[in-house]
């Protein structure tokens, strides 16, 4: 078989997978709707304000509840004591002086 034909088959397969990924994404987002709704309900019932992604310190656990005086906000671009401090920004309403 010609090299170009082999390449076309390969690219076509990859494109098919790409399309499949998008279809999969669409389907799974649709399927996730009840779960998202359940999460939203939990947030509403418990009056939650933050994701429990960074549990190491109070100002990373409750990002949105931190204030201008906590260590995290020493400087908006400073590398924090905690690794997550270098991943996420302080709340945007605190970044504007």
């Amino acid at each position: 078989m010609r090299l170009s034909d082999r390449l076309f088959i390969f690219i076509a397969a990859c494109l098919a997978l790409l399309v499949l990924a998008f279809v999969d994404a669409a389907v799974r987002v649709r399927l996730a709707e009840p779960a998202l709704e359940a999460r939203a309900t939990l947030v509403r019932q418990l009056e939650l304000t933050d994701l429990s992604l960074f549990t190491e310190a109070r100002y990373t656990r409750h990002l949105s509840q931190s204030d201008i005086h906590t260590a995290f906000q020493d400087h908006p671009n400073s590398f924090d004591h905690f690794p997550s401090g270098s991943l996420v920004l302080p709340p945007s309403h605190l970044r504007v002086p």
Partner: peptide, 24 residues
């Protein structure tokens, strides 16, 4: 007292892992 608005919470998480930030 200091009010924190929901839109501020949402904005905080909208800029989560902001593109220019981070060790990664």
């Amino acid at each position: 007292a200091r009010p924190i608005l929901r839109e501020e919470i949402l904005r905080t998480y909208d800029s989560i892992f902001s593109w220019r930030q981070g060790i990664v």
